[in-house]
Each structure stands twice: as structure tokens, then as C-alpha cells.
């Protein structure tokens, strides 16, 4: 016997559900006329100076204005994981992010594609000053802090450890945290080593709490690092805007390569570290700024395979799930013609 009150309550709940179902997909509506505000996500790393340079020089707005962009807004994320959560929540349109955070997000339903490369290599394993190091075996039993599970650093570190017959789950402890927390944890002796993107390794060395023992390029040569990710909605509804984003990204990256000192200054101003640290970081690191997404294609697909094996993703992601090379290729073809 179901009582009438109960039926009433159920009816209300179902009604609310249907209502919310009807109002669920509002995303595109505001984007139909003009474009409005374009929202970027990025991280406080020298890997992503291209974004900061284009921003500092006003190139984003200058180049994108004719596509209806009236303003840009950016969000700084400590790691790629919350950045992808923000994209899942529809809060950002373009993300400068490591190649791996998009994997689990896309696997779980994020509609977005990598349209350009940003940089390869560029993270260092930094060991506490007092600890000896000769081979990866010395790391057994230690606590290593790096970015959270699914981030590029976490993935590269785990693969490297496994390549060296160290079980990252049993032989040592990997603690996932943001860069600032990891630096504090190393300084206070709560972890023995950190694996972080630049400029953190340089900052730690300058503070004297640790020393770089392995660069990520030694772990995995030319491994993909940062990429430019844009939502499928943007690609579908504003392809010419996406194309211009890639062009501006190329412009800024080339400028940085030609003017590394100025890039360091822009970075220092944006993030709030000293120019000396920024400059030293750019000199010391093993990273390279790039723009061609296909440079990062192979290792990204390897990451996808590693993450699938780790159970981070439910399915093995393919190039079609992750990349849209058309914008970059089109731009390159035009340049060749010229």
C-alpha cells in the first residue's frame, strides 16, 4: 500500500528532476551572439610562459577581438587536476595544462581536444640535501611528493620507477600534493624528495633544501609535458577562434624562444618569483617550448596506455579521443605556401 502523501512527494521530486533536466544544457546559449569573455586556465610554471607572454603583451585580446572576444579572464591552478575539474564544470574554455590531466577527464566525459603543444620535458627530481643518491634504488623506502595522481609528474615518475624495477606502490610512498605544499614538506623534512616542474627545482636549490638528481628528460626522453587544450564546444562553434588561439600561442612561444630573458621577466612578474630565479630556472631546465602537437602525440598516447594500465582511465584513449591536429597543420601548410 502506497500512501497518498508518498505519491505526492515522489511526484514533486520527479517534477523537480524533469525541470532540472530541461534546464541542464545552457552552455552554448550565451556563445551564439559574438563570443564575449574567453576563459583560460594555466599554472605557475615556466612551462606555460607562452600564455603569460601573450597575456602580458595584450596579444590575446588584440588577436581575438575580431572573433568576438571582448575580454579574457584567467584562472591560476596549482596542478592540472583541479584545472580539469574546472573545465569539466564548464568554467574555462582553454587550458594550458600537462598532457596527462586531460586523459582521465576526457575518459570521464570531458569534451575537449589538444590543439597545440606547449613544451616538452622540464621537471626535476629533487632530493633532500642530506640524502645520498647514486642510483634509483637509493629511493626505496623514501617519501616522494609530486603532483596528484593522473598528473604528468605522477605518471612520468611512476613509469620511470617501474622501468627501474621499483614498485611505486610498495617500495616507496608517493604523496600527491601541490607544488607549494611539496616544497614546504621537503623543507620541513616530511618528505625526502619532490618531483616538480620548473621553476620549483630551482627555487628549492636556491633555498638549499634539496638538489636536482634526475631531470625528467633523463627519465623519459622528449616526454610530452604541457599542451593547449580547448573544449569541443569551442572547436565546434568557433573553429576560426580556435585557429587564432593556436596562432597567438605560436607567436608567443616563438617570441619567448627568441627573448628568454624577457620571458623570465614576464614569468617573474606574473607569478611573483624573483627575476633571478626565473632566469636561472629557464637556463637550468631541460625543457623546450614547442608548438607542434604531433611532437607530444606519441608520448601522450603512451601516457594513455600507462594510465589505462594503472586503472586511472576506464578505456584506452586514442589519438582521436585526445588530439585535433587540424588547426596546427592548417597554419603550417599556409606558412609553407607563403
Amino acid at each position: 500500500m502506497i500512501k497518498p502523501q508518498k505519491i505526492f512527494i515522489i511526484a514533486i521530486v520527479i517534477g523537480l528532476v524533469l525541470l532540472s533536466g530541461c534546464t541542464a544544457p545552457p552552455e552554448e546559449e550565451e556563445e551564439t551572439t559574438g563570443f564575449g569573455e574567453l576563459r583560460f586556465g594555466y599554472q605557475p610554471s615556466t612551462h606555460q610562459i607562452a600564455y603569460m607572454t601573450a597575456d602580458a603583451k595584450g596579444w590575446w585580446l588584440e588577436d581575438l577581438e575580431s572573433y568576438g572576444v571582448t575580454s579574457t579572464k584567467d584562472f591560476l591552478f596549482p596542478t592540472g587536476s583541479p584545472e580539469m575539474k574546472a573545465m569539466l564544470a564548464g568554467e574555462i574554455d582553454v587550458a594550458y595544462v600537462g598532457a596527462t590531466p586531460p586523459l582521465s577527464a576526457i575518459d570521464q566525459g570531458l569534451d575537449a581536444k589538444i590543439v597545440a603543444g606547449a613544451q616538452v620535458q622540464g621537471s626535476d627530481l629533487v632530493l633532500a640535501t642530506a640524502l645520498p643518491y647514486e642510483s634509483p634504488q637509493d629511493l626505496k623506502g623514501l617519501k616522494i611528493a609530486t603532483f596528484p595522481p593522473g598528473t604528468l609528474q605522477d605518471t612520468v615518475l611512476r613509469k620511470w620507477l617501474m622501468d627501474n624495477d621499483i614498485d611505486p606502490k610498495e617500495d616507496l610512498t608517493i604523496l600527491g600534493m601541490g607544488g607549494a605544499d611539496a616544497k614546504t614538506a621537503l623543507a620541513s623534512g616530511n618528505v625526502d624528495a619532490v618531483f616538480l616542474p620548473h621553476p620549483s627545482p630551482t627555487i628549492i636549490e636556491s633555498e638549499g633544501t634539496g638538489r636536482v638528481i634526475v631531470q625528467s628528460g633523463e627519465m623519459w626522453e622528449d616526454h610530452a609535458c604541457c599542451v593547449v587544450l580547448v573544449t569541443d564546444a569551442l572547436i565546434r562553434d568557433h573553429p576560426e577562434l580556435v585557429e587564432q588561439i593556436v596562432r597567438t600561442h605560436i607567436r608567443a612561444t616563438e617570441y619567448n624562444i627568441e627573448h628568454p630573458e624577457e620571458a623570465a621577466q614576464i614569468f617573474a612578474d606574473d607569478i611573483g618569483v624573483s627575476y633571478e630565479i626565473a632566469n636561472k630556472s629557464i637556463h637550468d631546465w631541460d625543457g623546450t617550448w614547442v608548438t607542434d602537437p604531433s611532437i607530444e602525440l606519441n608520448t601522450t598516447l603512451e601516457y594513455a596506455s600507462v594510465q589505462y594500465d594503472l586503472g586511472y582511465t576506464d578505456k584506452l584513449l586514442t589519438q582521436d579521443d585526445l588530439f585535433d591536429l587540424s588547426f596546427y597543420n592548417k597554419i603550417m601548410a599556409e606558412m609553407v605556401e607563403e
Binding site: 575539474k85 577527464a105 596528484p148 604523496l175 600527491g176 605544499d181
Partner: peptide
């Protein structure tokens, strides 16, 4: 949250949150 171990119910909530496995 601050990750004293790779195991633990709370840890796994954050772990899978980082991977967006809601």
C-alpha cells in the same frame, strides 16, 4: 587529504577526485 598514505577511505576520495572518477 594531506596524504599520509596511499590507502585510506578519505585518501581515495581525493585520489579519484583528482582523476575525475566521480
Amino acid at each position: 587529504i594531506f596524504g599520509v598514505s596511499t590507502y585510506g577511505i578519505g585518501r581515495k576520495i581525493w585520489f579519484w577526485n583528482d582523476l575525475h572518477h566521480m
